[in-house]
Simulated assay, not measured.
Amino acid sequence: MKLDIRRLLCFTDHKEVEAGHRHDQPLRRVAAVAIVANPYAGRYVEDLSEAIAASVEVGAVLAKLAVEAMGSYKVESYGKGGVVGLGGELEHANAMLTTTFATPLREAVGGAEAWIPSFTKLAAPGCLIDVPLAHKDALYVRSHYDGVSVTLPPDAPAADEVALIVCLANRGRLNARVGGLNARDIGGKDGLR
Score class of each variant (00 low, 15 high):
64 K>L: 10
95 A>Q: 03
175 N>P: 05
27 L>M: 10
65 L>E: 05
154 P>Q: 07
66 A>F: 09
115 W>G: 10
50 E>S: 14
78 Y>C: 10
67 V>L: 07
87 G>M: 07
162 V>A: 01
154 P>D: 14
52 I>R: 07
51 A>G: 13
123 A>T: 09
160 D>W: 02
147 G>R: 10
159 A>F: 05
107 E>N: 12
108 A>N: 06
136 K>M: 07
180 G>Q: 04
145 Y>L: 12
19 A>S: 12
142 R>F: 15
56 V>S: 15
94 N>M: 13
80 K>E: 08
122 L>I: 14
21 H>E: 12
130 D>P: 02
24 D>T: 09
33 V>M: 03
4 D>Y: 02
70 M>K: 09
103 T>I: 13
42 G>S: 05
152 L>K: 01
153 P>C: 08
40 Y>F: 15
30 V>R: 12
55 S>V: 00
179 G>C: 08
158 A>K: 06
34 A>L: 02
158 A>C: 01
149 S>Q: 11
181 L>E: 03
111 G>T: 06
26 P>E: 02
143 S>R: 13
79 G>H: 04
152 L>I: 02
71 G>C: 06
139 L>T: 13
24 D>V: 09
11 F>E: 14
57 E>C: 01
13 D>K: 11
94 N>S: 11
27 L>T: 07
24 D>R: 06
118 S>F: 03
10 C>N: 10
76 E>W: 07
96 M>T: 04
61 V>W: 01
69 A>M: 08
60 A>D: 01
150 V>F: 01
135 H>M: 05
11 F>L: 11
66 A>G: 09
153 P>S: 05
138 A>L: 03
69 A>T: 06
51 A>V: 14
177 R>N: 15
123 A>W: 11
121 K>W: 09
47 D>K: 06
64 K>A: 14
12 T>Q: 11
132 P>Q: 07
139 L>A: 15
78 Y>I: 10
145 Y>H: 12
145 Y>G: 09
79 G>S: 06
187 G>V: 05
169 A>D: 08
103 T>S: 13
177 R>T: 11
100 T>Y: 02
122 L>H: 12
161 E>V: 01
51 A>C: 14
121 K>T: 15
67 V>T: 14
43 R>A: 14
177 R>Y: 12
187 G>Q: 10
13 D>F: 11
193 R>E: 13
121 K>Q: 12
169 A>Y: 03
20 G>Y: 08
123 A>H: 10
25 Q>T: 15
37 A>N: 10
142 R>H: 10
139 L>K: 07
73 Y>I: 02
111 G>I: 00
82 G>E: 10
15 K>R: 12
51 A>M: 15
173 R>S: 15
193 R>Q: 11
22 R>A: 14
109 V>H: 06
173 R>F: 09
15 K>D: 08
83 V>G: 04
9 L>C: 06
88 G>Y: 03
190 D>F: 10
12 T>A: 13
17 V>N: 02
63 A>C: 05
32 A>H: 05
6 R>G: 11
34 A>Y: 01
49 S>Y: 06
145 Y>T: 09
141 V>W: 05
131 V>E: 13
173 R>M: 15
73 Y>T: 05
50 E>N: 10
32 A>G: 06
90 L>T: 13
21 H>W: 08
34 A>M: 02
158 A>F: 04
108 A>G: 06
156 A>D: 02
18 E>R: 13
